[in-house]
Amino acid sequence: MFADLAFLLYLGHLLADYPLQTDHQAAHKALPGRVGWLAAIDHAATHVVCGVLLVLGAAVLGWRLPVLPALAALLWIGATHAFIDRRWPVLAWMRLAHQESWAAHGGAAHVDQTAHIAALVVAALCLSA
């Protein structure tokens, strides 16, 4: 069940991060203050597609996902996504890991996606436990 959950959550993440993310969200989610947080939260809300895929998976594959843990997993995905997408956490990590040169040459996008996938794996592990 873990692999199915992880795959569906990853697919939901890709859908929310690319075809469902608006230009406004992408341009403003890392801005300081209220404007940035609102854009980040708005973008994180598009990850409701992960919930749609969980419902679909439950219907097609016969899962019996408890509602409260599933809602907690979706909240976790949205909250971690909004936090990671503020960009400063990724850049702070890359400074700590002595990756400033890689960050300056496009590496931050890879670290960003890795952090998102790590959060999805945590959600999938908790739901499959």
Score class of each variant (00 low, 15 high):
Leu127Gln: 01
Trp93Arg: 09
Val90Gly: 02
Gln21Arg: 12
Cys126Ser: 07
Val111Gly: 01
Leu120Val: 08
Phe83Cys: 11
Leu53Thr: 11
His43Met: 00
Gly33Cys: 09
His81Trp: 05
Leu71Ser: 09
Tyr18Ile: 07
Ala70Tyr: 02
Leu15Gly: 08
Gly57Glu: 01
Trp63Ser: 06
Ile117Cys: 05
Cys126Glu: 04
Gly33Met: 06
Ala73Gln: 03
Ala108Val: 04
Leu5Arg: 10
Leu74Pro: 00
Ala30Gln: 13
Leu56Val: 15
Leu14Gly: 10
Trp102Tyr: 02
His28Ser: 14
Ala73Met: 09
Asp112His: 09
Asp112Cys: 09
Thr46Gly: 15
Gln25Lys: 05
Leu127Asn: 02
Ala30Met: 06
Val60Cys: 08
Glu100His: 05
Thr22His: 03
Leu8Gly: 10
Pro32Met: 11
Leu15Gln: 06
Leu120Cys: 09
Phe7Arg: 12
His81Asn: 01
Val49Gln: 02
His110Met: 11
Val55Asn: 03
Ser101Trp: 07
Leu56Glu: 05
Thr114Ala: 15
Ser128Trp: 00
Val48Thr: 14
Asp23Trp: 12
Leu120Ala: 08
Val60Phe: 00
His110Ser: 11
Thr80His: 13
Glu100Asp: 15
Leu54Ala: 09
Glu100Tyr: 01
Gln99Cys: 11
Ala124Trp: 01
His110Cys: 08
Ala70Met: 14
Leu54Thr: 03
Ala72Ile: 06
Gln113Trp: 09
Ala124Cys: 03
Leu5Gly: 01
Pro19Ile: 03
Thr114Lys: 04
His28Cys: 14
Ile117Ala: 12
Trp37Asp: 03
Gly57Ile: 02
His28Lys: 14
Asp42Asn: 13
Phe2Glu: 01
Trp93Ser: 11
Thr22Cys: 01
His24Ala: 15
Ala3Phe: 12
Leu74His: 02
Leu38Ile: 12
Leu65Met: 11
Ala45Lys: 04
Thr114Gly: 15
Leu127Cys: 02
Ser101Ile: 11
Gln99Pro: 05
Pro66Phe: 07
Val121Pro: 02
Cys126Asn: 03
Trp37Ala: 13
Asp42Gln: 10
Pro19Lys: 10
Ala109Asn: 12
Ala129Phe: 06
Asp85Phe: 05
Phe7Ile: 15
Arg87Lys: 14
Ile77Ala: 07
Ala129Lys: 04
Arg34Ser: 14
Leu96Phe: 13
Gln21Thr: 04
Ala108Glu: 15
Met1Arg: 13
Pro19Cys: 06
